[in-house]
């Protein structure tokens, strides 16, 4: 469907494009500027790189981690824990939300428990988790699930409960049962909320896994950060943090991609 646009419209489009390019240029500009200043202050000796590290030292640290073969090992460990924890939290959270939507009694009975679990700082359960799950990845995955599941449950329950009253009445007047209402109306209309829940939970999953690694771990990015802090290797702390930023952004980008695919499918 190729269309001939008027000159004015082409100018409008060109301007839009220009604007977008400018925004991207400024984004990279700010990053380059910050990194440049950081590098400069340490290079000229205005700040002690022992305390602040510097972009070049971060590069070197990452290179050395790469050359002794532990870079991808640590990334892999944390990434796997995060992804498994994320997946379990999302699936279980949705399942619990469905159960709560289905039965008003269950919802009323469990409400105070959920409120308390939501308010509880999960890190308080750290010692228990170590005792129950040991010091391996299971403990960290459990922590990740714990941090994410309540958010997923509450978010999805809100979405399910917010289903349009008129549409519910319409389906009931057609003689729809609860399962049909769920299938035809509640789930499809909650899809946007599901995506926003995934976005929130990406953040929650990283909080969970890194927090878990702080408490108990022998490998992973959280471990590198804690270890780096203990032996005062700020380069290591900064490097691991930098890698975390990239991974978290990547995971978020995947959710955005998923959103685009789903929206596109819903419209075809």
């Amino acid at each position: 469907m190729k269309k001939e646009f008027s000159l004015e419209h082409r100018r409008y489009l060109a301007k839009k494009k220009q604007n977008a390019a400018l925004v991207w240029a400024l984004r990279f500009g700010i990053l380059a500027l910050l990194l440049g200043i950081w590098e400069a202050v340490t290079a000229f000796g205005w700040a002690d790189p022992f305390l602040t590290s510097s972009p070049s030292r971060i590069c070197k640290t990452i290179m050395s981690l790469y050359s002794d073969g532990t870079l991808f090992y640590h990334i892999g460990v944390t990434l796997l824990e995060t992804l498994i924890g994320f997946a379990i939290a999302v699936v279980l959270g949705c399942a619990v939300a469905l159960l709560l939507w289905w039965s008003e009694t269950v919802r009323k009975v469990l409400e105070p428990y959920i409120v308390v679990l939501n308010a509880l700082p999960k890190i308080a359960l750290g010692p228990l988790i170590i005792i129950w799950f040991g010091t391996g990845s299971e403990a960290i995955v459990f922590m990740t699930v714990l941090v994410g599941i309540i958010v997923a449950t509450l978010h999805m329950l809100n979405a399910f409960m917010a289903t349009d009253g008129g549409k519910l009445l319409l389906l009931r007047s057609m003689g729809a049962g609860k399962l049909q209402i769920l299938q035809k109306l509640v789930i499809p209309s909650s899809l946007p909320s599901f995506i926003s829940m995934l976005k929130v939970n990406v953040g929650m999953a990283w909080i969970g896994s890194i927090m878990g690694e702080y408490i108990v771990s022998r490998a992973g990015l959280g471990y590198l950060i804690v270890y780096g802090g203990q032996v005062f290797k700020l380069d290591l702390v900064m490097s691991a943090t930098f890698i975390l930023c990239i991974l978290a952004a990547g995971m978020y980008a995947l959710v955005v991609l998923l959103e685009k695919v789903i929206v596109k499918n819903a419209e075809s």
């Binding site: 008129g166 549409k167 319409l170």
Partner: peptide, 22 residues
């Protein structure tokens, strides 16, 4: 009903099939 209550994620055709599915 007062409002059309068409499901926005379905085409008009699929909306019309809704009662048949139910």
């Amino acid at each position: 009903l007062q409002k059309d209550e068409l499901f926005p994620w379905r085409t008009i055709e699929k909306n019309i099939y809704l009662p048949l599915e139910i």
